[in-house]
Every structure is written in structure tokens, then in C-alpha cells.
Design a protein around this nucleic acid. Sequence first.
DNA 1: CGAAATAATTGACCCAGATCAAACACGGTC
DNA 2: GACCGTGTTTGATCTGGGTCAATTATTTCG
Lengths: 237, 237
Amino acid sequence: MHNDDLVALSKIPLFAGLSLAQLEELTQAGFVHALPTGATLFEQGEMPGFLHVILRGAVAVVGTAPADQAADAPAHREAIITVFGANDALIAPAVLLTLPYMMSARVIEAARIAFLPAQAIRDLLANHAGFAQESALMLARHWRLLVRELKDLKLRSVSQRLAGYLLSLAPAAQTAPAQVALPFDRRVLASWLGTTPENLSRSIAQLGGLGVAIRGRKVHIADPDLLHRFSREDNLR
Amino acid sequence: MHNDDLVALSKIPLFAGLSLAQLEELTQAGFVHALPTGATLFEQGEMPGFLHVILRGAVAVVGTAPADQAADAPAHREAIITVFGANDALIAPAVLLTLPYMMSARVIEAARIAFLPAQAIRDLLANHAGFAQESALMLARHWRLLVRELKDLKLRSVSQRLAGYLLSLAPAAQTAPAQVALPFDRRVLASWLGTTPENLSRSIAQLGGLGVAIRGRKVHIADPDLLHRFSREDNLR
DNA sequence: CGAAATAATTGACCCAGATCAAACACGGTC
DNA sequence: GACCGTGTTTGATCTGGGTCAATTATTTCG
């Protein structure tokens, strides 16, 4: 494993408590891969072999509906459950519990990813108090992310979710007009927001009436405050 | 705190690693309340003061949409995000991270609940390796529960979710007809499944065609296997 | 550069599930 | 047993968002 990668890992809170020796032992049997958009890290149902840590890029975690084996096969559906970015560890729960993945993971933005052996991670959890503590805190944060998605899905419309998402891209600019860039293509964005590309288009058009102009991946938000009120977002993260 | 309660707590994996002395210290500043259906444990937005552990009964965790302050107030919506039962610890993430609750908690089945001071829990996380490890494992399990709900919501119909829920009530009876009882009233069930009571009724009627008879809270499943195929559930928990 | 492939938008239509409203079905209580 | 309130079902209608299909950008690449 390259030294830069080791340094990057050591800066992630989850591993910050490890001594250099421990970190080197952990990465001994691990490796780093650069993966292009579209690459699959693992499939739903597989047993986890590694904890994946994203050093750069982004990975979507997608759930796939059990295929219908009826004669009129209806194109197996799938949905992005959540997206992980740089410095995130990918699906620790399956790794820690030694249970099969409930979802598949696909690279959606060219990524550099560390593969750390699952057993070594489990050993760390059992033997390293600091690691266990950081694991708990990380999992707690991840839990809250999912809760937010669940609340969004049950309580807000597609347009509201889109509005909220656009605001989340803008760095805290509450009143001044903001200019942001969409990090993903429409298909990914749609699936993440829990809708279809067609509908996303319509929602984008709808937000035009609230001072949002989107051309390509460039987004101009004329009045963040107005948008925020429309999105009906609670501030709870 | 009553001694029976102490014993009950000590049997929960999360606290199993504590010595008797540590457990007593933890419960020193805590207490146990018996709460009727409808009681509220905490509200969305509040800062957590306690970790709640359910000794008996059940608690629903509900997200509420920010009220619309427009003139035509549209009855503030809310949705059950998940339900916790006996031996579950309620929303450790907010407690561990010292962040406001993202949801409210309401008793939906007469409950006996231990209130453990949040700060004591955080201290345990920092100082007790076994507790930190068990916390991580518990949070990992909870994460997978939410993932399942998210997948269900995005990929399956109300009837399919209902079918899956009914099967989850029946203890592993894969082939033989099964008789189960709904633990909650229709309103709660509907909200949990992500629908309305009216629609739940219709879904119930629909399942009649698959050998499911529901009268009151008694459910008779004539052919669990048929129901299972209809529900299109993957076995991933 | 221009053709082919891919991505995004637009339009027409459909459907699962929500909403509104009314009719029932009960368990309690007196 | 009659009364009342709550919980449940049924019916009619509406609608957000999905699906299908055709069109119009964008890329990608020879």
C-alpha cells in the first residue's frame, strides 16, 4: 500500500487512534485500488471480505428488488439507498456483524478505495477500545443519515427533496445567491432522491419558479432562503 | 431502581459486559417508569437527557414534518420511522453524539422503560471497551433495520410489505398454516408500513385472495409459502 | 468534423395510493 | 340493552409520480 494512502487513512477519525504499527499491520493484508465509474465493489447477498474506505470519489449503495421469475420478466428494479464519499467507510455493519450485504455498491465517481481485510477490522473492534468507540460514533452518524432519508421519503415531495439537496450543496450561503455544481448525472441523482430521471426533470423545471436555474450541471440559486422555506426541511441532521 | 429491573438490564447484550458495581453505578442516577400507550418519551428537536431502554412494551419512533405556517394550515403530517420493543435501547445515536433527536418517541404498547443518564452512557462508551464494542454491534444491527425499511419503501408495494410483516410475526412456519396476532392497532400498523389506515384495509382485503384471513387482530395464514412468494422479500436482514 | 451513442427533456397517459366522506362495528359505560 | 366514542371498512374521487414514447441536447470517438 502506497504511503500517501496510509497517511490518508490515518487521518480518518475511525483510524486516528491506531498507532503507526497497528495501522501498518492492518494495511499489510489490504490494498488500494483505483476504480472507474461503474465498477462494482460488491453485490447484495455476498459475504463481506473487506471494509472499503473511500479515499477519493464516490460510491452509491443500491438495493435491488428480488427478480420476478414470472414469464413477463419486468426488468429488475433497483434504487440507490445512500451515497458515500471521500473518507467514508463503506457498510461497516455487514463487516462487523459478519452478515451478507443487504445492498450492492457501485462507483459513481472515479474512486480510490482502500480494501481492508474484514477479519482484521473485527479483531480491531474486539481488541482496540478506541477503535470500538470510533466505530460506534461513526455508525451513529450513519444511522442518522438513513433516518433523514427515511423521513424525507415519507414526509416530503420529490421537489422538496431536490430543493433540500441543492441547498446542501451550497456551503451555508443562507441569503446570498449561490452557484453550485451537481456532482452526479441525472440518473444517479434521480435514484438517490427516490424518483425517475423524467420526474427529476420536471421537478427541476418546477423549481424554476423559485429562482433556481439549472443548465447542465451548473446550478444557480437566486434566493436560498426562499428555496429553504419551500423545502420544508427541519435542521435536524 | 427495582432489583428485577437491574437483572433485566444486565441480561441485555449492551450491558452484559458491565460488572455489578458498574451497573449499579449506571443505574444510580437513573430510574424506571411504567408508561401507558400514548405517552411521549421525547420530542423531535430535544436534546437527549437519557438513554431509554425498553424492558417491556413497545415504542414507536415518529418523524414529524415541519408545520406549514401558511394560512391554510394542512394538519401537520407525521410518520412512524421504526418501532422498538423489549430489550431495545432507544436511539443511542443522539445520546452518543450529543445531538438533538431527529424524531419523537411514543409508547404504542404499555411499557416499562429504564431511563439511564445520557452522560453516564457517554462515559461508558469512552471508558469501557466492552461497552463500546457492544454499542457498535447494536448500532450496526439498527442500521440494517433502517436499510431494510428504506429498501421496502423504495422497492415494494404496500401489500407486499404487509405480507412480509405478517410473515415476520409467524415464527418460521414456512409451509404449515399459521395463526398470528397483530400487536398494534391499524393506525400504527399503517403508519409503520408507510401508508394510511384506509389503504391498509384495502391491502388486507387484497391479501384475502392469497389465503390470508384477518378478523380483528387475529390473522390466519393458510399458505405461508404462497404469501412469501408474493411478498418478494429477499432474505437479507 | 461529423456520425453514433448516450443523456436529458417533453408530452401523453396510467396507476398506486392518498384524500374525503360516509357507513359500520365494536367495546365500554351507565 | 341503549348510548356513545373510537376504530375500521367501504366507496368515490383526486393526484403525485411512474411509465412509455418521441424529441432534443450532449458526449464520445472514428
